[in-house]
Nucleic acid binder design. Structure first.
Length: 142
DNA sequence: TAGGCCATCTGGTCCT
DNA sequence: AGGACCAGATGGCCTA
């Protein structure tokens, strides 16, 4: 993970509500704020770890393209609906020999991805066109 | 250079 | 009181 900005709070900038006449209060408040910042960084780190784990289990566009957080959530939603569809699809029982992978690709609808970004390369177009199944009764809300 | 994405800081709110 | 969570603000990095 890249560290963007050197922490200004870690150097001790704390705000306005502090009484300049009371160094002890100022120090206490500064320490509290720094601790809160550290906790927040830790919390966001956990959140980003969760996003990374999610990215590993949803379909990716390619090794060189990392899904943004928003894209990851949209992809996860669509993927879950697709898997749910697979589990409830009656064709599953009629054609047990069908390859799981084929059905999986078949069950993700392209319009769920179209809003995410533009895909210009032939490889990406091919990948998108493989998601051809139309849901009935499932509606995604943007 | 503008726009998208992101990390970080910060203050507010809620909960224990 | 202190921690967790959240949303707004800010500024850096990257790409078209």
């Amino acid at each position: 993970m890249k560290s963007r900005r050197p922490s200004c709070t870690d150097s001790g900038s704390v705000s306005s509500e502090v009484d300049p006449q009371s160094p002890e209060k100022y120090e206490t408040s500064t320490k509290r704020r720094m601790a809160a910042n550290a906790r927040e960084r830790k919390r966001m780190e956990g959140l980003n770890t969760a996003f990374d784990r999610l990215r590993k289990v949803v379909p990716q566009w390619g090794e060189d393209k990392t899904l943004s957080k928003y894209e990851t959530l949209q992809m996860a939603l669509s993927y879950i609906l697709a898997l749910n569809r697979i589990l409830t699809d009656p064709r599953r029982h009629n054609a047990p020999q069908r390859q799981w992978r084929d059905l999986q690709l078949d069950c993700v609808q392209p319009e769920n991805y179209a809003c995410l970004r533009r895909y210009d390369s032939p490889a990406e177009q091919d990948y998108i066109s493989s998601f051809s199944y139309q849901f009935d009764g499932h509606q995604l809300h943007a």
